[in-house]
Simulated assay, not measured.
Amino acid sequence: MPENQYSDDPPIQISNEFADIRVRKVYTRNGERLEIHAHRRGYRILLDAVELESLTWQTPETFSGFLRASVGRDVDDE
């Protein structure tokens, strides 16, 4: 099997005015992964089932912290 093989399913694209991402299933030597690709920014990540499940354990504040770290603090945060 090649290093990463994509599923036959088409990628799912989710977009808004701030982001545009594509997700799809990838088969690797270590099992299935979900590839998340932000092609405008050039970022890509492969997540396994446990990593994906861990996202459900997070609060909205956790994701707000991710965004602050990448785009800067809100005026309300000062």
Rank of each mutant, 00 (worst) to 15 (best):
A69V: 05
A69T: 03
I21D: 02
T28H: 04
H37V: 07
L47W: 11
L46D: 04
Y6Q: 06
L47M: 15
D9Y: 11
T59S: 09
E53A: 14
D8Q: 10
E78V: 07
L67E: 07
I21R: 01
I21C: 03
A49I: 05
N30R: 14
G42L: 01
E53H: 09
S7C: 08
V75I: 10
P2V: 06
D74H: 11
V26S: 03
P60H: 01
R29D: 13
R40H: 12
R22Y: 08
G42E: 08
R41C: 11
Q5T: 12
D20Q: 00
W57D: 12
G42R: 01
R22E: 06
D77N: 09
D9C: 05
F18L: 07
I45N: 07
R33M: 04
P11Y: 07
W57C: 11
W57F: 14
K25C: 11
S70T: 15
V75H: 12
D48Y: 00
K25H: 13
F18S: 07
I45K: 05
R41P: 01
P2D: 13
K25Y: 12
R68V: 04
M1A: 10
D9F: 01
N30K: 15
T62A: 03
T59G: 04
S64W: 04
R41M: 14
I14N: 00
E51G: 02
S70Q: 13
R41S: 15
D74E: 05
N4W: 12
L55W: 00
E3F: 15
R29A: 08
V50I: 10
L67I: 10
E17Q: 06
E53R: 14
L55V: 02
P10K: 06
P10V: 02
R29V: 09
S64Y: 12
T28E: 03
F18N: 04
V75Y: 06
T59M: 02
E51P: 02
V23W: 05
D48L: 00
R68Q: 10
Q13E: 15
D8A: 08
R29F: 13
R73H: 13
Q13I: 12
T56H: 04
L52E: 08
F63D: 00
Q5I: 09
T28Q: 01
N16D: 09
E17K: 11
R44H: 09
E3G: 11
R22L: 11
Q5N: 11
